[in-house]
Write a protein that binds this DNA or RNA. Structure first.
Length: 1093
DNA sequence: TAGCGGTGAGTTTTT
DNA sequence: CTCACCGCTA
């Protein structure tokens, strides 16, 4: 019978099954009938199984056939891990034990893997595949929670969404008590939200309680003075330090950091409690709760242990501590649990998520007596040449199972076993290529892709792998321009796209105007430029200049847009869109209270002309998809909260942006037949005919050991191996990542690096390059100029300067008639002429930032302190209380620039720093002073100049000028204080400011007798060490000459209207404004340096 | 060789 | 905001 069906003798498990069939035949009559039924069964379910089974190699068969007891399969890349897993499930179902599909639990880490496994299983066993429990760890636990409310509280529980969680964290931060280590008084008050989330996640995935962390910190801090890192090894006579003394300053800093961490960790219970109040739980809870329930209710655990008799785990090397604990619980009932794990220690790259090699070792040791260890070594993916190179690098790792479990004598020498690679002559050898610079590298990769395309290679078989997304940006842009299809996994966040930004600006404007009329003027100015409104930029400039005239009829844009009669009088190029816009805005503002948000949004989309504009454009499909995605988001949120207001929406989006929560859109970027782009991380589990691993330089592939989580953790938290994890560990993880990347390739592997980046800075090739190739085996590639030029012309080079069209010359001239140079105008012009144009020529309405308004209030309070003293008969300062009251009064005037929370915290900050400042200096202040000195109507040659000095302190005829600075001294870079250097030929802004004051005083007749000897920047806030800081700028005649020349030069350039070109700096507000509203097409500059081969 | 001060840059990803 | 790195100094 065996031979009739063509089975070999060594069929293993089949023996029993067939024997069983044989008995059946003997005991029942009608053997023909049975035979037919069996044959039928075979053809339906057995045939595909057997066909596949026959293709397995000996180790794979052993893995499939070993049904009982613990099995550990170590499966290198391309060794058929998924197939073995699926085949084993199939085999369980068809074995004599009559395992039911629902008794099998197969756990994976990603949804993607679940889908892949289910699909594979469907091919092998058909419909039964749907009855096998295949889940991610989290989905499994979530099901357990949802299906057993009696163990998890009867309330309705839902997984928390990203947004809800963020709200919760914000809420916790808002209600921190005064003096709490995480309470921030200025800047981004919610800065720690992200860090808290990360910390809580970590604590929960490791099952660390708050007291446990706090205790670990105590132990850590106590141990600091004994650690080498915190002991001076060398004496320093100047500071009276002996070798062996503790580094007290470093210890103090570390202790401060730890107190922050402790304060954060102690918030975990509150976070948990509040989440529970909301009826929500997070990802970590899913696993932790199930573990807890299993531990507390033995009968519940038992029920589940019996339910799932056979456990299978994919990618076991990625299990975290909690997941591992769950597995242990589920399998604990049996002495020899039927647990089957598959993994590869060499592909363990998720250590930062808590995955530890140790878990595999623990697993082995737990079941040491009966465990079956199988190593899959036959690789069906790659050519031997590729495998050899991969082995060359991974063999440098020490933390590998073959060393850790050396008693087993594991052999992981992976061998190419795919028949297609028999004929070695046709297999291309892996290429290691070096390029002159990144530009050459990118251009060459693109041209190689083109060649592949021309030779008929389906592009979905080509992959570009890199360590970080940004390494692919230029190549992607290039393909885009050349219309070569590509496929990127990285989702696009619609919130980053200009069209959505513009729509959001409309919302923001409407909201601000609704709150308080004319408070949104700044935004309105920007909105006027939106392409869909079709307003001429020249007309905007004309009107900007009109709004500055003394005899203007309107002060505000919003009024001006309503005044159709007036608009007719300017001789505008195209006034129509202006009053159409004016009408739209009024209509929308009116509709804010009567319409739901989605309805209002719909009106805006159509009234404004956005839809019409997009439909006329080149990318209508994509653009409409973007708008729809955003619209759907607004609708969804409105469904959740029917009373959603614009304010709530804007707040929500602001938080989302800050916390990196995206409204993502992927479809359009995925072109089925396109070149694949992956980070090495996400390429795991995929394979490609042609693989290009690019940018193999140290800075990208060998990450520095920065554990850059917001809160630093004491190393006493984890029991051991800390030293390993630091230096060597990081290197080994990086090497595994590279190993994963290399082993994605089937036939053609191309590894490349560049010697210089595009800024002409030297790059260091990764050490892995040396591990896989000798110097003379590498190809040096240079691209010809023609290729480079095309690449240059389409790639995103360092930002080119932006140029715009200026307002009409005669209008600008009119404005310039009244222009006088102030130090801030001078600094602004030197920094970015375009910004100068918007801020000083068009005088765009500007909202005050919170830090600016705070500065104003502090200045005012200090000014009053001195002014009152001067007026006082006894020349006494008023008391501290009065100072703080004055400050509060000034803050009240500025209240509009703050949010409610910001206002409160800023008051707190101001009272603190002003109080300290008062105490520090009140007894030593120089009382021969002038507080606030205004100078105007002064000219330097023919250049009108003006300025306002905070304070002058006199010693006889000599004076020093004091300038108050709010904000931390740490952030005022000290090189702002020095004059021209090679790196900064214009000199620092602070330096220029003081020299400018000197020039002002020299040319101001009432001050003729005074001699300014120096300028002092007086910081109101203490620095981090708790010291008050005053920076002195000495003034010499040479500096005066330099700045005078600067003033004259800049004035001349301004008079010549040389402000149509921006600085192009990435964080420049106005350059970005011009880009967001597409006011200019970037000009392409050719950087000759880059072309040298 | 340690320490100081200034400078520049700034992941990867899953549920 | 924090850390790594560089160059200088004792």
């Amino acid at each position: 019978m065996l031979s009739r069906w063509g089975f070999g003798e060594e069929l293993g498990v089949f023996g029993k099954q067939l024997q069983f069939a044989g008995e059946y035949k003997r005991t029942k009559a009608g053997k023909r009938d049975i035979f037919c039924k069996l044959k039928e069964y075979m053809s339906q379910t057995e045939q595909p199984f057997l066909k596949r089974y026959n293709k397995l190699n000996a180790q794979q068969k052993r893995a499939v056939d070993t049904i009982y007891g613990p099995v550990m399969v170590i499966a290198g890349p391309g060794t058929g891990k998924t197939e073995v897993l699926a085949m084993r499930i199939a085999n369980l179902l068809r074995s004599e034990t009559q395992v039911k599909p629902y008794e099998i639990l197969c756990l994976t880490f990603t949804d993607e893997a679940t889908v892949a496994m289910r699909r594979r299983l469907l091919q092998i066993i058909g419909e039964d595949a749907h009855r096998v429990h295949i889940y991610t760890f989290h989905a499994f636990c979530n099901n357990v929670i949802q299906n057993n409310p009696e163990y998890f509280g009867l309330r309705e529980l839902m997984p928390i969404s990203d947004l809800e969680r963020m709200d919760l964290l914000y809420n916790i931060i808002e209600t921190l008590p005064e003096g709490h280590a995480l309470r921030r008084l200025k800047g981004d008050i919610y800065y720690d939200a992200k860090n808290l989330r990360a910390l809580f996640d970590l604590m929960k995935s490791e099952d660390w309680s708050a007291p446990y962390v706090s205790g670990a910190i105590d132990i850590y801090l106590e141990s600091l003075p004994e650690r080498e890192k915190y002991i001076y090894k060398k004496a320093n006579s100047k500071k009276n330090i002996k070798a062996g003394d503790p580094k007290t300053e470093d210890i103090r800093k570390e202790a401060e950091r730890m107190e922050r961490t402790r304060a954060a960790a102690l918030l975990l219970p509150e976070y948990q409690a509040r989440m529970q109040e909301m009826g929500r739980y997070d990802f970590s809870d899913m696993i932790l709760w199930v573990i807890k329930a299993f531990k507390e209710h033995p009968e519940f655990l038992l029920m589940n242990q019996e339910k799932f008799q056979f456990l299978l785990v994919d990618e076991f090397q990625d299990t975290s501590g909690a997941q591992n604990e769950l597995l242990t619980l589920l399998s604990d009932y049996w002495e020899d649990p039927n647990i089957f794990i598959v993994g590869d220690d060499d592909q363990s790259i998720f250590e930062f998520q808590g995955a530890r090699l140790q878990n595999i070792i623990d697993f082995y040791e737990r079941y040491q007596k009966t465990i079956e260890v199988i190593v899959l070594k036959e690789n069906y993916r790659s050519s031997q040449a590729i495998l050899d190179r991969s082995a060359a690098t991974i063999s440098s790792n020490q933390q590998r199972l073959i060393y850790q479990l050396d008693a087993l004598n594991l052999d992981k020498n992976i061998v190419a076993a795919n028949d297609r690679f028999r004929e070695e002559s046709i297999i291309p050898a892996p290429v290691v290529a070096s390029y002159f610079n990144v530009l050459h590298e990118e251009a060459d990769i693109v041209s190689q892709i083109e060649i592949l395309q021309q030779t008929g290679v389906p592009l979905q078989h080509v992959a570009i792998l890199y360590a970080q997304h940004k390494q692919a940006a230029n190549i992607i842009a290039m393909l885009e321009k050349k219309s070569i299809p590509y496929w990127v996994k990285k989702p696009v966040n619609v919130l980053d796209l200009p069209i959505i930004r513009q729509i959001l600006n409309i919302f923001e404007y409407l909201y601000q105007e609704h709150q308080q009329a004319f408070s949104g003027e700044e935004l309105l100015f920007q909105l006027l430029h939106a392409p869909f409104f079709q307003v001429s930029t020249l007309d905007i400039a004309t009107l900007s200049l009109y709004l500055q005239e003394k005899e203007r009829k309107h002060k505000y844009w919003r009024y001006l847009l309503q005044d159709t009669l007036l608009l007719e009088t300017f001789g505008l190029i195209n006034p129509k869109p202006l009053y159409k816009l004016g009408q739209c805005l009024e209509k929308w503002i009116g509709e804010m209270s009567s319409l739901t948000l989605p309805m209002l949004m719909e009106n805006i989309l159509y009234d404004s002309g956005i839809i019409g504009h997009l439909l006329k454009g080149n990318n209508q499909v994509w653009d409409m998809q973007v708008v729809h995605t955003f619209f759907d988001f607004v609708k969804d949120e409105c469904d959740k909260r029917p009373r959603l207001s614009i304010r709530m929406l804007l707040e929500m989006i602001e938080k989302m942006e800050k916390e990196g929560i995206a409204i993502s859109i992927q479809k359009v970027v995925k072109q089925e037949n396109g070149v694949r782009f992956y980070t090495a991380f996400s390429a795991k589990g995929h394979e490609f005919e042609h693989v290009f691993v690019v940018g193999l330089t140290k800075n990208f592939w060998e990450k520095k050991s920065g554990n850059n989580r917001g809160f630093s953790l004491p190393d006493t938290l984890t029991r051991e191996s800390q030293s390993e994890e630091d230096g060597r560990g990081a290197e080994e993880v990086a090497r595994r990542l590279f190993y994963v990347a290399m082993t994605r390739a089937k036939k053609h592997l191309h590894i490349s690096f560049s010697e210089k980046d595009n800024k002409h800075k030297d790059l260091e090739p990764s050490m892995f390059i040396d591990e896989i190739s000798k110097d003379d085996e590498r190809v040096k590639r240079a691209m010809d100029n023609e290729h480079l030029m095309t690449h240059l012309s389409v790639s995103f080079m360092p930002d080119p300067p932006v140029k715009i069209e200026l307002a009409k010359a005669e209008l600008i001239d009119k404005r310039l008639e009244q222009f006088a140079v102030s130090v801030s105008a001078l600094n602004k012009y030197l920094d970015c002429p375009l910004s100068f144009y918007y801020e000083y020529i068009l005088r765009v309405p500007a909202a005050k930032s919170d830090s600016l308004a705070f500065g104003t209030a502090v200045h005012y309070a200090l000014e009053q302190l001195f002014k009152k003293m001067i007026k006082d008969e006894d020349k006494e300062f008023f008391d501290k209380d009065e100072l703080l009251k004055t400050f509060y009064f000034a803050m009240k005037r500025e209240e509009g620039a703050f949010t409610e929370l910001q206002f409160g915290r800023r008051i707190e900050l101001g009272k603190q720093i002003l109080g300290e400042y008062y105490d520090e200096y009140i007894d030593s202040f120089n009382k021969h002073v002038v507080a606030e000195y205004n100078i105007s109507n002064v000219s330097l040659g023919n250049v009108p100049i003006k300025g306002k000095l905070d304070k002058l302190e006199f010693e006889g005829k000599n004076c020093v000028v004091i300038d108050y600075k709010t904000g931390s001294p740490e952030y005022s870079s000290r090189n702002q204080l020095i004059g021209p250097t090679e790196a900064n030929p214009d000199g620092g802004d602070y330096w220029r400011q003081m020299v400018f004051y000197k020039i002002l005083l020299q040319n101001h007749p009432p001050a003729r007798d005074w001699t300014m000897t120096a300028g002092i920047f007086d910081f109101i806030e203490k620095n981090k060490k708790g010291e008050f800081v005053r920076y002195t700028v000495p003034i010499d005649e040479n500096s005066v000459g330099v700045v005078k020349a600067q003033i004259k030069d800049v004035y001349e350039r301004i008079m010549n209207k040389e402000f149509d070109t921006g600085c192009g700096k990435e964080d420049c507000t106005w350059c970005n404004f011009v880009k967001t509203y597409e006011l200019v097409k970037p000009t392409i500059t050719e950087d000759v340096e880059l072309l040298k081969g």
